[in-house]
Design a binder for these strands. Sequence first.
DNA 1: CGTCATTACCTTTGGCCACC
DNA 2: GGTGGCCAAAGGTAATGACG
Length: 679
Amino acid sequence: MSTTLPPSTMPDAFQQALDLDQPIYLEDEDIVAEAASSPPPIPLTFTPTKETFTQYLEYTDILPEYPQTADGGYSYVVYRDKLQLADINEMVGSIQYSRTKSYCGRHVTKYPSFLGDMPYFHSSYKCSGVKLCQYTHPELKNLYHRHVTTELQEQVASYRASLPFSEEDKRQKTTYAKYNAVIRTFNNRALCGESSTESCKPVLKWSDPQGALSRPRPLILCSNRGEGNSPHWRELVKVDGQLDIAMLERLLNSPHRLTEENEYCGAIEQFASRLGYCQYDHKQGPGRLIHSKCNVTFHWYWPHDLNQYPYFIFRSEGDHTHPPPPSIQRPLPLIKEIRLLIQRDPEQTPSQFLRSPEMQKIYDRYGVASLNEIHESFNCLAFIPRWLYKARSLKYPAGQDFAGLEFETRKNPSLVQSYIPFLSEDIIVCMTEQQARMFLTLESVEIDMSFKRYRDAKELVLAVFLPEQSGIFTLYRVITYKETTESYTRIFTLIDDAIYSYTRFMDMDLGQYKGLAVYLQEHCDNLSHRDIIEELVIFCRIHFERGVRGLVKKGLTMPGFTARAIALLNVETAEEWMLGTQFIIALNRQNKAQQEAQNTPTQDTEITNVTSSGVQKESPRATVQPTLTLEAQIREQELRKRFLELQQSNDLLEKELQNRRIREEEEEARPQRKSRRRT
DNA sequence: CGTCATTACCTTTGGCCACC
DNA sequence: GGTGGCCAAAGGTAATGACG
């Protein structure tokens, strides 16, 4: 619905302004100088109650982050092919001035505007100003502006740079803050109590070293403090790297102390900032952030039919009665993209997210290596963990603990059928049908226990290494909150149940499975659990190596023990294994006998304890050196040769590992930032 | 219609704390 | 020391009504 306006009612200025061939361009010109000869105002709206005018008009395809403003109004006519309402919101939302909305989206249907005689919407913001430190330099405070130019930004930066020490150097900042605190407290006569006098001044001295190995330590004390007990102030300065002691000494002991005059600050924060004080400890104390108000108004108008008229007008009126705020509004299109990526996969950590291939694509698009190279507002990335947390909370409203799982299973019952065959408060079993089928085709599986993924629970994983895929295939996952034998028995029963529930229609596989069950039952009656374990279980290499090193740590002194024991891991047959272990045991006996002969006391450590924790507690079985037949002796020689070869290659490996450890220790010893380590 | 004031709800932010 | 979880407070938004 549109109202036609007789051409006669169109003001000349409007007609002239509508002539897009002759736009009125005002770019980086000095508006103040032009004010004397300012052109007649251009009407933007034609309403009977109050017409809106603009003094300046600029055509553009993108609204600047710091739109210009003017007394009679500075307006931008923004044109873009296929302009959408979202684009308008994005551009208006990206301006760097904090603002509050005066009103939003008012329809104007009866009166024409600069956009023509079609209905339009009209919205309005008010600039909220900035927050300035109470010690802001008066010139900076009064840096009213209409246009943010490079010169203005440099001028603002110069006020920040005029502070005594670089704001970026944390150590210098801390030292300066310490110095200021000491001076202030001395000036308040708060440190020397009743003995405090006008002449009390803080000085930095070094203590006399106590003993040959101690070093002099820095002290801040009152200049009136003598030897021994004194009511005057004395404080030992902590040498923990946070303070630059040499700088503190220079500041405190210099005959020309920094002038006692107050210093000025250059801190400007967005009005939206919740900081109470500026980030700089001044001589006169921390500076409270104070709201510097502003009366600038922003208005924007856009036609109902953006397809037909892909224009909108943005108008800014009044002077900003404050210096320009720092550029911290993040570019909206990029922010939307990041938000979408986070919503898609909120289970990443912030650093994983920033290094993800999706983010890498964004960096590549801009030809940069990190976000802060795209826009300075990304210098602070604290919003990333918050958004991840929020997205996770939305995705898992009941959390990701047991309650969350229960919630998910109720919401999505098929989850139970397809992946969680058993769920109780103590044990959660995860297995799919494909995993169950895979399980039945295997001769062996690996069992691993993880303590790290969940806070209170442990995770037991049955997996198999597939050489064709060069990867580990998980077969079965149990999350358990108990660690008792009963709970493990229950877990292994549940493996049976899970496989059965998924594969009950597979006759052939079921036969295999039943056969295995019968086999286990029959053998369990006749054999001890140790025998069954020996028959069925191969323990983890890492646990074996840990066991070997543990024995050495406990005091086993047999020469070449580590290399020989670890060589056992590379044997290929049971015979080689038995021979190897007997060889080591015999050597150990010999070694012990020698040590006893020399009356050297040794640790009572038994090598046969070298197995995984499950068997470790058992008493070692008596080993008998067998009497060998001739045939066996020949076979033994072959095996001994093979064992020695293995041992030799292992010795080399051991040496290489040792060298690597030494190198790592040296690296660690260097004074550098320690990296976090996960074990 | 332009503007202001009010209100209720939504979102962001700085800071605290526990944990690894 | 970095990180994540969480909270209170403050800023922002949207809707609405009143007035000139």
